[in-house]
């Protein structure tokens, strides 16, 4: 195979903080790795340990929670 490992990362991001930061990083044309699949949530206070276990259940390699 010899394929490069491209990790699947799931990102839970707060609408008001990290998601906005991601947005501003995009607008300012900063380069960052495209491995993160983002789920926008209204507040990271909604985070539940179950979400993280679920994420690993469906085959992600890592979970990033950004508040």
């Amino acid at each position: 195979m010899g394929q490069k490992f491209n990790p699947k990362i799931l990102g839970f991001m707060c609408n008001w903080c990290c998601y906005a930061a991601a947005d501003s990083a995009g607008v300012a044309r900063y380069q960052y790795p495209p491995n993160v699949r983002t789920i926008r949530m209204m507040c990271t206070g909604r985070m539940d340990p179950l979400f993280i276990i679920d994420a690993f259940c469906v085959g992600t390699d890592g979970v990033f929670v950004g508040g």
């Binding site: 990290c18 930061a21 607008v27 990271t44 890592g62 990033f64």
Partner: peptide
């Protein structure tokens, strides 16, 4: 698994 903080101004 990681939990980090970045404000809206911290691109």
């Amino acid at each position: 698994f990681v939990l980090k903080w970045a404000s809206a101004a911290e691109g």
